[in-house]
Write a protein that binds this DNA or RNA. Structure first.
Length: 888
RNA sequence: GGGCGGGUAGCUCAGUUGGGAGAGCAUCGGCCUUACAAGCCGAGGGUCACAGGUUCAAGCCCUGUUCCGCCCACCA
């Protein structure tokens, strides 16, 4: 017996370090690749290389680790691919900020040197989040760590780009895009966040060119009128049919623009007349296309008015707005200004108001790819959990627009397209061409743009496994088993992986998608630095231990619910970890090498009741835990473990077997120790995926030769451990014990005071059974004596407890608190009467008797009998108490 | 405007084919009982948002109402 490693309270810090080191040194996270085994694989949602572990990462990666450890223990070839994302704009912004501190901009360095700088930064700081994931216990195959900008992945990116281009699915076009004037780049639609903003709606008079009248247009952005090239009205709007041939003379600039008729215009909004600025508004752009309106750009890529804005050139767009409004006012064109709330698009990176602008960009024609992804989901080749995301997914995919993939930044995958300076030919190849294939000129210029970061992450499930080469990894681990991610990147990332995976691999990238919720603070608010409600997982791990945090996250992760994290709960689960620790310490005091040698339990039915019971409960728990893991019901896994370990194993089983362990006969002891050890081992295995550190530590000090816990076999449901009879018998005894304890407590009987108790049980065999456990019952309730009687005088001066058809009496020699007892009985009677009313009504109902299953009717009948009988017992008890009271 | 989720104990939430309302924390009372006071024992506490409907039977299924949250969307 060696308990010296087990201190009285679990001290996690050293233990965690020790096992991290051990797992690493023994290379236990490396993916197994044995032929003939099932395989299980996950690719990590690559965190930004600039990232620092936040609680969302902690949740996401704990879930993946739970699944990974589970499947590894099940004996599958298990691969979890880790890595980071180069995060184009985010990373560029970070490095630019560093440069700014030195008073430099990226332009001072030039493109190449700047990129060198980014790589340098990545070498120094980029590993932060990876180290934090390691600390969290993530059992990724770290030898396979990937970075979206590394050589292999970049090759995959070029390959995909070129193939899509040659298939006609990538094209370059002048189109209106979301432009961030601060980041100086185009953004995809998904990178624009719309936020309700208090703004104003300006009503402006637009005079007819012939001076015969005017029309009023409403706009939130008056400065864009400088770029107006038309006014649109609805073709069926009778107010405006006469405008067909009337030109509009724009105020301030006096340009004359046509009136066009377009059904897109909402007649009810404002005056029903819409100013059209095709260069700075997506809708207007499309109206302009339909009616061949001129494109007139008046805002440059910094958000400043350009030369086309005439006297307003050089003004910032918002300054210009004020000036324009003032001028309109002064010249009498402004009809009115209303307060108006509307959505404004902001850059998801820097929150700058996005400027829609036309520019030459690269696009992916996603419709055909999206159709394939939708088909895969409809045919359940990909399953999404929880199910309620299907509708959202379909509606998004149905309305998908072409994906703008070019970004005017420097950090990222440079677009593999070259233009010949000689003949203007466009060359798209995976490798830089030496000469132009059409004119042989060697003066070729590569496109300056880089690709959207999500382009490379869309390839992640296969690029990380060596594609475009045919690798054994792809053969064994693609498609991956499950993608675990937060729902907010379903469209950014998940949908695009589906499209790319299906298109290039001919097979879905993952079988299951598990979408988890966002972690919020305990009030359900988003965590943010400005609100100050951020829970830092690293601090939490420091304070309560990594296992406690992991368990808490898993316990909170009910499907489809937001996760409201409360530090108090983490503390609560630390207590649970400690409970497990102490239970193990207790067990270790009793098990020995001999118990470890004979682990198989061949004949459970021959064991003593408590052992049969705990084995049966263990089997049930294994079943529940496995089911929860298989169906991604993480919270069920946590609570099945919690309930079983604390309230069954510790509260009942360990207490129950103490007598046997301390004083039983040798044969019984030996059997008991064996069961104790086997159950403890099972518990450790069940808990290991969630709380890897404490379980591995305990496991390592158990007697017997053993492999590390993380590579031992996950428990199977042992059919022969299931024992309905034992469970029923135990709950009977537990009921009796609880009854006696209740009486003690209600009557303020000090725990050290030994008392007597009697039980009257009308059923002979049941009475005999209870009687055979007199010693244990007395032990568990600190009784002097305990008797079971079939019949007999009920003691007068006693407190009573009714448990089903059993009556429990504790004679208290005048110490019964009569008032309290009467009150308790009264409460009890009320409950019974209420139930009786329900049951009687049911049984009096012919329809119930006719329609309900016989089983249900029988149950109700039995229930009624029991309730009737108990009502009688309560009445008797009340009479006895009243007699005592009267005598006093 | 469309879609999704939620309203169950003081708080945070479970409740998986419809058949006697649960957990954790918090609260109250009693205990240093030799694994654990980060503990043990016991107790109180709920018209399952509201109104209808289906059913012998509804927290659960259907309809409507209401409140809260999130997502999407081209009414400037």
């Amino acid at each position: 017996m060696d308990t010296k490693l087990l201190s009285k309270a679990y001290e996690f810090a050293d233990v965690e370090d020790k096992w991290l080191r051990y797992w690493k040194e023994n290379d236990l996270f490396r993916a197994g690749m044995e032929e003939g085994k099932a395989s299980f694989s996950i690719v990590i949602p690559p965190p930004n290389v600039t990232g620092v572990l936040h609680v969302g990462h902690a949740l996401n990666n704990t879930m993946q680790d739970v699944l990974t450890r589970y499947h590894r223990m099940c004996g599958d070839n298990t691969l979890w691919v880790p890595g980071t994302d180069h995060a184009g704009i985010a990373t560029q912004n970070v490095v630019e900020r560093h440069l700014a501190e030195e008073g430099k901009s990226r332009h001072d360095l030039g493109r190449e040197k700047f990129i060198d700088k980014v790589w340098e930064w990545r070498e120094e700081k980029g590993g932060t989040i990876i180290n934090q994931l390691k600390k969290l216990g993530c059992s990724c195959d770290w030898s396979r760590e990937r970075f979206t900008m590394d050589e292999g992945l970049s090759r995959a990116v070029r390959e995909v780009f070129v193939r899509l281009y040659k298939e006609g699915l990538i094209y370059k076009g002048d189109y209106i895009v979301n432009w961030c004037p601060r980041c100086h780049t185009a953004l995809s639609d998904d990178e624009v966040e719309h936020e309700e903003t208090q703004g104003k709606l300006y009503h402006i008079r637009y005079p007819f060119a012939d001076g015969s009248g005017h029309v009023v247009v409403a706009t939130t952005r008056p400065e864009t009128m400088l770029g107006d090239t038309g006014v649109a009205v609805h073709p069926e709007d009778e107010r405006y049919t006469h405008l067909a041939d009337v030109g509009i003379r724009l105020p301030l600039t006096n340009r004359v623009v046509p009136v066009v008729f377009d059904t897109h215009v909402q007649r009810e909004f404002g005056t029903g007349a819409l100013k059209v600025t095709p260069s700075h508004d997506r809708d207007d752009y499309e109206i302009g296309l339909r009616h061949s309106l001129e494109l007139l750009k008046v805002i440059d890529d910094k958000g400043v008015m350009n030369e086309a804005a005439g006297i307003y050139a050089g003004l910032d767009r918002f300054e210009c707005r004020r000036k324009i409004v003032a001028d309109l006012e002064e010249q009498g064109f402004l009809e009115k200004i209303e307060d108006y709330r509307h959505a404004v698009g902001n850059c998801y990176r820097c929150k700058t108001v996005v400027e829609p602008t036309t520019s030459l960009q690269w696009f992916v024609a996603v419709k055909p790819l999206a159709a394939e992804a939708v088909a895969a989901v409809r045919e359940e080749r990909i399953r999404i959990y929880p199910r309620n995301w299907y509708n959202t997914f379909y509606s998004w995919m149905d309305n998908i627009r072409d994906w703008c993939i070019s970004r005017q930044i420097w950090w990222g995958h440079r677009i593999p397209a070259w233009t010949c300076d000689g003949c203007g030919e466009m060359i798209v190849e995976t490798r830089a061409p030496v000469v132009c294939p059409s004119c042989q000129s060697s003066r070729l210029t590569q496109d300056k743009d880089v690709l959207d970061t999500w382009f490379s992450s869309a390839l992640w499930p296969f690029s990380t496994m060596g594609w475009p080469q045919d690798t054994k990894e792809l053969a064994m681990f693609y498609p991956t088993s499950v993608l675990v991610t937060s729902f907010d990147i379903l469209f950014f990332w998940v949908a695009r992986m589906m499209m790319m995976g299906i298109h290039f691999m001919g097979e879905v990238p993952f079988r299951d998608v598990y979408l988890h919720a966002l972690v919020r603070d305990k009030h359900g608010k988003k965590m943010s630095k400005s609100t100050g409600n951020v829970i830092d997982p690293l601090e939490v791990m420091e304070k309560y231990g990594t296992d406690a945090m992991r368990f808490t996250l898993i316990a909170f992760a009910a499907q489809g619910r937001e996760i409201k994290l409360d530090e108090e709960r983490i503390e609560g689960y630390r207590h649970f970890i400690n409970k497990l620790w102490n239970a193990a310490r207790f067990a270790l005091m009793h098990v020995d090498e001999d118990s470890a040698r004979q682990q198989t339990i061949t004949a459970p039915a021959e064991l003593a009741l408590a052992h049969r019971w705990i084995l049966s409960r263990t089997a049930a728990t294994v079943k529940g835990v496995r089911r929860g893991l298989d169906e991604y019901h993480f919270n069920d896994v946590a609570s099945a473990n919690y309930q079983f370990i604390w309230h069954e194993f510790c509260d009942w089983y360990l207490e129950w077997i103490k007598a046997e362990l301390f004083g039983g006969d040798e044969a019984g002891k030996k059997n008991g120790r064996r069961v104790l050890l086997v159950v403890l081992e099972t518990i450790l295995k069940l808990m290991h995926p969630i709380t890897p550190f404490v379980t591995e530590e305990i496991w390592s000090v158990l007697p017997g030769e053993r492999q590390p816990l993380m590579v031992s076999a996950f428990p199977e449901v042992q059919e022969n451990w299931q024992d309905q009879e034992a469970e029923e018998k135990m709950s009977l005894l537990m009921g009796v014990i609880t009854g006696i304890r209740n009486i003690r407590s209600e009557n303020d009987v000090h725990p050290s005071a030994t008392i007597d108790a009697r039980v009257i049980c009308p059923q002979k065999d049941k009475a005999a059974f209870i009687s055979s456990f007199e010693a244990t019952i007395a032990d568990m309730t600190r009784l002097k004596s305990f008797q079971v009687m079939e019949e007999g005088d009920k003691p007068e001066d006693a407190a009573t407890y009714i448990y089903n058809d059993i009556e429990i009496f504790v004679p208290l020699q005048g110490l019964v608190d009569i008032d309290a007892e009467l009150e308790k009985l009264g409460r009890e009677r009320k409950k019974i009467e209420a139930k009786l009313k329900q049951v009687s009504a049911k049984l009096a109902n012919d329809k119930f008797l006719a329609n309900a299953p016989a089983q249900v009717v029988a149950k109700e009948t039995e229930k009624k009998q029991m309730l009737d009988a108990n009502l009688g017992k309560i009445a008797e008890a009340e009479t006895r108490l009243s007699n005592i009271a009267a005598r006093k």
